[in-house]
Design a binder for these strands. Sequence first.
DNA 1: CGCATGCTTCGACCATAGTCGAAACATAAG
DNA 2: CTTATGTTTCGACTATGGTCGAAGCATGCG
Lengths: 226, 226
Amino acid sequence: MRDGPDIAQIAALIGDPARANMLTALMSGKALTAGELAREAGISPQTASSHLKKLLAGSLVRVRGQGRHKYYGLSGEDVAHVLENLMGLAAGRGHLRTQTGPKDAELRSARVCYNHLAGSRGVQMFTAMQKQGYLETTEDAVHLTEEGTQFCTGFGIDLEGLGRSRAPLCRPCLDWSERETHLAGKLGRAMLTRMEEIGWLVRIPDSRIIRFTRTGETEFDAQFSA
Amino acid sequence: MRDGPDIAQIAALIGDPARANMLTALMSGKALTAGELAREAGISPQTASSHLKKLLAGSLVRVRGQGRHKYYGLSGEDVAHVLENLMGLAAGRGHLRTQTGPKDAELRSARVCYNHLAGSRGVQMFTAMQKQGYLETTEDAVHLTEEGTQFCTGFGIDLEGLGRSRAPLCRPCLDWSERETHLAGKLGRAMLTRMEEIGWLVRIPDSRIIRFTRTGETEFDAQFSA
DNA sequence: CGCATGCTTCGACCATAGTCGAAACATAAG
DNA sequence: CTTATGTTTCGACTATGGTCGAAGCATGCG
C-alpha cells in the first residue's frame, strides 16, 4: 500500500519513553532547558541531547538559544493537539491505570495544556462561553462573536495585540480526561494568563496542575456557570 | 513529572513501520485477514502474527475469527482519528515527500477514511451539507437537522436502522490532506456505502483510493455544490 | 481420513537504538 | 585568564525487539 505520509517515523519519535516524558513536560507550554528536560525524563544530559536532536530533526520541537541555555518548546499547536489525542487513547485503552493518586484528580480538574486551561474547568469555561453567545462554532473552527469581543475586552484581554500574528485566535482542543472540547488558540492562552494575573489561579511548579484560589473559584463559577 | 496516561506505549505501537502499514491499511475500514496484512506490510506471516498480537494487547485493533481466517479491524473510530491526525503531522513535517506520484493526487481527491469519504470530496460534501442546513455543528459534535433527516431518507439511507447502536451518528474528522473537517460516524459510513450502491463511485482494490464515475461526479457536484 | 491452507509458537539471529562515561565546546562569571 | 556551568560529540556497551526458518495447531475440503 505505502499510502499517505510516513506515520511510523513520527510515532516512533513519540514512542520512546524518555522522549514522551519530555514532550509531556512541554505540554505545559513553558519552554524548558535541555537540562530540565533531562531531569524530567530521568536520563543523563548526554542522552537527552541526543533525543532532542532527533525531536528537532522531526520538527516536533523548536529551540531558542539564550546564553548558555537552550530553551526547547513544542513546535506548534498541532503537535500539542496530537499529544492530547494520544493521551485520550492511552487513557481509554491503558488497561493498567498506573496510579490514581491525588495528583491525578487534580490533573483532571484543571491543568495546563500548551498554555491554555484544560480539564473539567477548561470544558466548563468553553461550554459556558458558548452558551452565553461569546463563542460560535462552525465545522471545526471557533469564532469570537461581537458579544464575546466585548466580554474579553472587559475581562482585560488586549485583543488588538493578539490579532497581530497569523496563528488562529480560537481553536477547539479535545480534552483527554473529559472527552469534550475546551478552548485553545491565542485566546485560550490569553485567558489563562489573565486569570493568573488577577489571582484566580496559580500553576503548581514542575507539573501541569493548576490550582484555583478561594476567590478565584467562586468568581470563575459565577462568570462561567454551567 | 510522570503525568497523565502512558503515551509512549501506544505511540511505540504505531511507531514500527510494519505495524504502521497495517494500521494504515485498516484505515479503509475493511477488515483484513492476518495474511493480507502481512502482505500489506511486506513481512512474513510469522512476524505479522507477532505484531498483531501486540496491537491486540494495546487494544488498537480487534479481531473476529471466521473459519480458518482471522479478520482484523481497527478497534474504534478514535483510533482512526488519531491515525488521521498523525498523518496530518507527518504530511506537514515530513521534509522528504517520498513521492508525489499520481496515486498521491487521487488520494487527496477522494479516499476512504475508516469507511467514510475523505479528501477534498469529503470536505466538499461536509461543507455543502452544512451550508444547506442539513448539519449543525456545536462544539465538537455534529447534529443532523430536521431537513438533514429528510434529505438522508430521500437519499436512500435507513436512519432508523442506524439509530440502534450507541455509536455517534455524526462525528467530525479532521482531514489530513485538506486540513478541514469531513463527516465521519455512522452517517458518514452510510453515505459512502449508499453512494457506492447507486454507482456514484468505486473503491480501487488494495488501496484507499475512491474513484468517481462519470455520472457520479456530475450528480455529486449537483447535490453538494460549493 | 488425509491433505491443504491459514495462523501461531518457538528458537535463534541480528540490527537498531537507547544508555552513559569521558572529553570537547560554548558561554557566563569572577 | 581561570573557573564554573550547560550542552554536545564521540565511543563503547547493552538490551530490546524485529526478523525469519522450522515446527505445531486449527480449520476446511475432497
